[in-house]
Design a protein around this nucleic acid. Structure first.
Length: 110
DNA sequence: GCAATGACTGGTA
DNA sequence: TTACCAGCCATTG
């Protein structure tokens, strides 16, 4: 069955992004920059935070994309409400205001 | 082949 | 704390 609802084939970089995002444990998060920085360690080179965002925007429907946030602790633009709701449901450490992730505590690295 | 785009980042105000 | 700016780089049209 088709797992990708959109375009034909994810790029190799996108596949690596999806694979890594799928490994993020519940209650933890990674920033787009962290994901981009971790890919070379998996054998994938090139790209940057923007390519991670693009990959999730197109093919992120099958992975916990809400566990990937911006460097300032805020979730992806356009999905902040839904992402925060899911993070809260997973007991992800949030800041007192409850509108951002407590990065120092919630950040995860493979 | 070239120009525009984007679920970003870091620095400065 | 938020807001704006310039740089970044694969993907897309």
């Amino acid at each position: 069955m088709p797992a990708e609802p959109l375009a034909g084939l994810p790029t190799p970089y996108a596949e690596a992004v999806l694979d890594l995002v799928a490994r993020i444990p519940p209650g933890r998060v990674m920033t787009y920059g962290d994901v981009a920085a971790a890919l070379p360690a998996l054998g994938i080179v090139g790209g940057g935070p923007r390519q991670v965002g693009s990959a999730l925007a197109q093919w992120g429907g099958g992975v916990p994309w809400h566990r990937v946030i911006r460097s300032d602790g805020r979730p992806a633009s356009g999905h902040e409400i839904e992402a925060l709701a899911r993070l809260r449901a997973e007991a992800t450490p949030l800041r007192a205001a409850g509108d951002r992730v407590d990065l120092p505590h919630a950040r995860w690295t493979p």
